[in-house]
């Protein structure tokens, strides 16, 4: 006979026992969605950045076709001999026409249109290149060549990612505060429901710790239960949301996915909910009991 004696009955405050898990489920759901979005966007932007960061485009815009070709050849030669450059690929006319056709209409790209020469440059991975110096050298050999480093694009992507992350952190912070508040309410309701039993236990010689322990275990369970419900709901939503993004296709959105490490973060949420509920209940009970005789 070493079974644990429940000093307080679960039945005395059924209301918080029933409601609390659902409230906590909503909290964990919101945190989960916010965190998953932030992590997904963060990963996608990181992928894009490493992609774009390795690519440069050189444009040669000169009116005279002979001059243009000469400048392009000089630029190509310079790029090919620059350390850290992996490939240099001059887009042929067909490729450029294909790029323009959606805007200008098929067959409208005539021979008389002064098309720029585009040179696609891939950098070796893990090589830092001084793009400012490269741009200067390019202008010496080809005055009408312009170097595009995708930096504007990247900084905009980072700004978007930063905003999503900031929003997620705010949501998680607010949700944590709301969880603490609702657990405090629930604990006070429990204390009121058990008031007489607690008084009896005290008179029999129980310490505050024993009573706090009862509440602690109870709220840990309620928090974990709610957290798991919320996690499952968030998981379903994320899976549906991802296949929706996939179906939108070709863009940055379908790159939004979760890495295994991100999933661990999400799995921690129900645990966090349980632990937050547990400690909040404990502190609330100890503070309330200290005011009793």
């Amino acid at each position: 006979m070493t079974r644990r004696v429940p000093f307080l009955s679960d039945r005395a405050d059924r209301v918080s026992g029933r409601l609390l898990p659902w409230v906590i489920a909503v909290m964990v759901f919101l945190s989960g969605i916010a965190l998953a979005s932030a992590l997904g966007v963060h990963d996608a932007v990181a992928n894009w950045a490493s992609d774009l960061g390795r690519r440069l485009t050189v444009q040669v815009v000169a009116a005279d076709p002979a001059d243009r070709d000469a400048q392009a050849a000089a630029a190509e030669a310079l790029l090919a001999s620059t350390p850290g450059v992996e490939t240099v690929n001059r887009l042929d006319l067909g490729a450029i026409t294909a790029l323009l056709e959606p805007w200008l209409g098929k067959g409208n790209v005539g021979d008389d249109l002064p098309l720029p020469v585009l040179i696609d440059v891939t950098l070796a991975p893990d090589r830092l290149i001084n793009t400012a110096a490269l741009a200067r050298q390019l202008r010496e050999v080809a005055p009408d060549a312009a170097l595009d480093t995708n930096e504007q694009w990247l900084s905009r992507l980072h700004a978007v990612a930063g905003m999503v992350e900031g929003t997620a952190v705010t949501v998680v912070g607010l949700v944590t505060l709301a969880t603490v508040a609702i657990v405090i309410f629930g604990t006070h309701a429990g204390l009121a429901a058990h008031r007489e039993t607690i008084e009896t236990l005290h008179i029999i010689g129980a310490r505050d710790n024993l009573i706090a322990g009862e509440f602690q275990v109870r709220f840990l369970k309620l928090g974990l239960k709610g957290g798991l419900i919320g996690l499952v709901a968030a998981g379903v939503t994320l899976v549906l949301g991802r296949s929706f993004l996939r179906s939108l296709g070709g863009g940055i959105l379908d790159k939004v996915t979760l890495e295994p490490g991100d999933l661990v973060v999400l799995l921690v949420l129900p645990l966090a909910a349980g632990v937050i509920a547990m400690f909040t209940a404990r502190l609330t009970v100890l503070r309330a009991l200290a005011r009793m005789v």
Binding site: V5, F7, L201, I204, G205, A206, L210
Partner: peptide, 12 residues
């Protein structure tokens, strides 16, 4: 059993 369990004795 309550008073003695609270005081922490051997349940048996």
């Amino acid at each position: 059993m309550l008073p003695l369990r609270i005081a922490g004795g051997d349940p048996k």
